[in-house]
Amino acid sequence: MAIVEHTDSTGLSGEDGVRRRDFINIAAVSFAGVGGIAVVLPLIDQMNPSADVLALASTEVDLSAIQPGQAIKTTFRSQPLFVRQLTPKEIAEADKVDPSTLRDPQTLAERTVDGKTQWLVTMGVCTHLGCVPLGAGEGENKGEYGGYFCPCHGSSYDTAARIRKGPAPKNLEVPKFSFTSDTAILVG
């Protein structure tokens, strides 16, 4: 029986030794593979942010009560947002730095809105591993460069919230925002 089958299959072998049965084998297994992937994809994708998480609103922030030298923390897309009014001294310190010497070169002007350089709006998320840097609250450690200091792994940011020291690779992120009036901004 086995011998008969063997002779049969060799008899059917066409040119290059490729049989129709080989094609059917590959086609069948490939189809099962496609089916397998189609099952696995939704099993993975269910872990991505759900519709309610993605339906993120923008945030309006009232700046009227923030004094020069003061910062507030609020939330934007469930993460902390720092809004700081810089003092002239802090602006001068930030402008004094040659951007080309920085790990992530940016000037203060590039990080703020024209004519309103004193308003520094950044995410309060350390670009290393995501802790909230200290420095926004009164009396908190602002680090060596007078901006923010992340307690998790020791990253220091300057008065323009640019990374100056430690393991973080980027400056604190500036989200998309615009002034809706002289004392209010819309983030997002």
Binding site: N48, P49, S50, V53, Q79
Partner: peptide, 11 residues
């Protein structure tokens, strides 16, 4: 994907 959001949350 791991967090199911942009920061740790209920998901």
């Amino acid at each position: 994907w791991l967090l199911g959001g942009f920061a740790p949350g209920n998901a």
